[in-house]
């Protein structure tokens, strides 16, 4: 008994020790970024890898928040939130619908269409930038959030495929049972599958939020007025190869820009791991 207990304590220590050692390497760059955001200009490059700023000054934050040309980071953050929240809702909701269609209903042309969807993921986005720009400028959507938001409501292959794979793990007997209870396809989707793929949807939401949040080329092309710029685009404006960069301000705003992504992750992760194992589902 004692031996077993000792062994357990040992594994626990090994487990946590291992995680903390690796965890330090995981965290170091992020901590470095945060530390740098409090350092003054000279300190950033002189004692570059130190994680402890000599003083805790918020000057960089004040300076950075002012933004560019009279447009503060308040505006950039607001724009980011509008774009990202609208897109995330659209991507997750539409992808769940489509995933159900592909995973659970047998219809004509399914194979071909599924293959088409996979193929669309294989073409590098760089060559689609110009054709898409031509399309959206012809629709008159340039200088609005529409080119960045509207396509999100038409499903996103990565998430569709992800949710399909999660639906694979759910026994079809459930569908059959629901059908016998008088559910139609919509009912099966909405009442049975949707709650069960919640972890996949939350995962998708985290990714969607993050990808849209840090997207650079989309806003660069479609949003021309600086008061429409999101944070990702604004952050690039700190640095110019020919002029002095306000590194402190850049690090401060970079740090700040990670906060929403971080919060979303912290809020959502518990839903991912709550998962369906708590529902006591049996195959």
């Amino acid at each position: 008994m004692g031996l077993r207990k000792e062994k357990r304590i040992f594994t626990t220590i090994a487990y946590h020790g291992f995680i903390w050692i690796f965890g330090f390497f995981m965290m170091y760059p992020v901590l470095w970024l945060i530390a740098s955001s409090f350092k003054d200009e000279a300190e950033i490059f002189q004692k570059s890898y130190s994680l402890i700023p000599s003083s805790l000054k918020f000057d960089n934050y004040m300076q950075g928040w002012k933004g560019f040309g009279g447009i503060s980071f308040g505006t950039f953050f607001k724009n980011s939130f509008v774009i990202v929240i609208l897109s995330t809702i659209g991507q997750v909701a539409s992808s769940a619908l489509v995933a159900y269609g592909f995973a659970r209903i047998k219809f004509v042309g399914q194979r071909v269409l599924f293959a088409c969807m996979i193929i669309t993921m294989l073409l590098p986005s760089q060559v689609l930038m110009i054709p898409q720009y031509i399309l959206f400028s012809r629709l008159g959507w340039v200088n609005s959030f529409r080119p960045l938001v509207v396509p999100s409501y038409f499903g996103y292959p990565f998430f569709i495929f992800l949710m399909m794979q999660f639906m694979e793990g759910i026994p079809r007997e459930l569908d059959e049972a629901a059908r016998i209870d008088g559910c139609n396809q919509w009912g099966i989707f909405f009442r049975i599958l949707l709650p069960l793929i919640r972890p996949a949807m939350i995962t998708s939401a985290i990714f969607s939020f993050y990808w849209k949040w840090q997207d650079f080329f989309g806003p660069l092309l479609y949003l021309k007025k600086p008061n429409l710029y999101p944070v990702s685009l604004a952050l690039k404006m700190f640095s110019d190869p020919a002029a002095v960069t306000d590194w402190g301000a850049m690090f401060a705003m970079s740090t700040l820009s990670l906060v929403p992504v971080f919060i979303i992750f912290v809020m959502c992760q518990k839903y991912i791991v709550e998962g369906i194992s708590t529902t006591g589902l049996k195959g």
């Binding site: 650079f216 600086p226 404006m237």
Partner: peptide
């Protein structure tokens, strides 16, 4: 419309 040097020419080309 002001931006950083990074991306400026991609935007102009498009």
């Amino acid at each position: 419309e002001f931006t950083a040097w990074d991306g400026y020419w991609e935007k102009i080309a498009t």
